[in-house]
């Protein structure tokens, strides 16, 4: 018992002060990219051509965060990755950007904020993918992020869930289990596509074994880009979209 208390004192309090205080991630973290529309067209063309995910549109000078894996191959004069983790969007088209994402808090449905603003129960389904998204969703339960202080919890049964959080490119082998889970949830239900796999198939696009777009199966309400999304991106998106908190 004394040992437990001793360790507790030694380990101290570790929870992030966010959202009361802003949090700055390491400068090396590749978050929201900002695009330079004054950049030389040849460089833009090269970035578009070299992008392993074909996420850059050279003519429109935009990047598709639903396809991007944030690998940094394009980082340079045209694309500059900032350490801004606020990446959540309410519409697929918002993810195609030059670096300014719309305010997520203003996109949430009023009805949902009333229903889920104080308590949000989420069912997670892993549908293909590489388990990095799942791992970085799981850490929201660790003391640092401490998701439940916002009244948000991941639950075991779809019957208890208000929202469905899907990761992975939806392998063909997971399609029916995913649809069954969705069908088992009571209305109204929100759907969250987390990670570039669930949004666009991610690195696996083109494979015959995947569906590659969650929105083609069930209507998606919230997109969280990343490969995987940083836990702060997920935390920010959930709190902002469902609780309408001021962004930080």
């Amino acid at each position: 018992m004394l040992k437990i208390i001793g360790t507790r004192l030694n380990q101290g309090m570790r929870t992030t002060p966010w959202p009361k205080k802003p949090v700055t991630l390491a400068a090396s973290y590749r978050g929201l990219p900002r695009l330079n529309d004054q950049c030389d067209a040849a460089i833009i063309g090269q970035c578009a051509e070299q992008c392993p995910q074909q996420a850059i549109d050279a003519a429109a000078k935009t990047i598709d965060l639903g396809r991007c894996v944030f690998c940094g191959d394009c980082a340079g004069d045209f694309v500059r990755f900032t350490n801004d983790f606020r990446l959540g969007c309410a519409a697929r088209s918002d993810l195609i950007t030059a670096g300014d994402l719309p305010d997520l808090a203003s996109r949430a449905k009023e009805q949902w904020r009333k229903l889920f603003g104080r308590s949000l129960q989420i069912r997670q389904v892993s549908a293909g993918g590489c388990n990095a998204c799942e791992a970085d969703t799981n850490v929201l339960g660790t003391p640092f992020f401490d998701l439940s202080r916002f009244g948000i919890d991941f639950v075991a049964s779809p019957r208890h869930a208000d929202a469905l959080h899907v990761t992975g490119p939806i392998s063909k082998n997971m399609k029916s289990a995913l649809l069954d889970t969705y069908a088992a949830m009571p209305e109204p239900k929100a759907v969250i596509a987390a990670g570039c796999c669930a949004i666009s198939g991610g690195p696996f696009y083109g494979s015959e074994e995947i569906i590659g777009d969650l929105n083609s199966l069930i209507p998606v309400d919230l997109y969280i880009p990343g490969c995987p999304p940083h836990p702060m991106s997920t935390l920010h998106a959930l709190v902002t979209f469902f609780k309408g908190r001021a962004e930080r």
Binding site: Q50, C51, P52, Q53, V69, C71, D73, S126, G128, G129, C130, A132, G168, P169, S171, K172, N173, M174, A177, G202, P203, F204, G206, S207, E208, E209, I210, C227
Partner: peptide, 25 residues
Amino acid sequence: GYQHRGLERLFTTAPRGRLPIIAES
């Protein structure tokens, strides 16, 4: 098999630049 994404075949068909991304996934 629920997570099957057809990776071995993808290594023979995907463009070269994407292979390291697939390997990491």
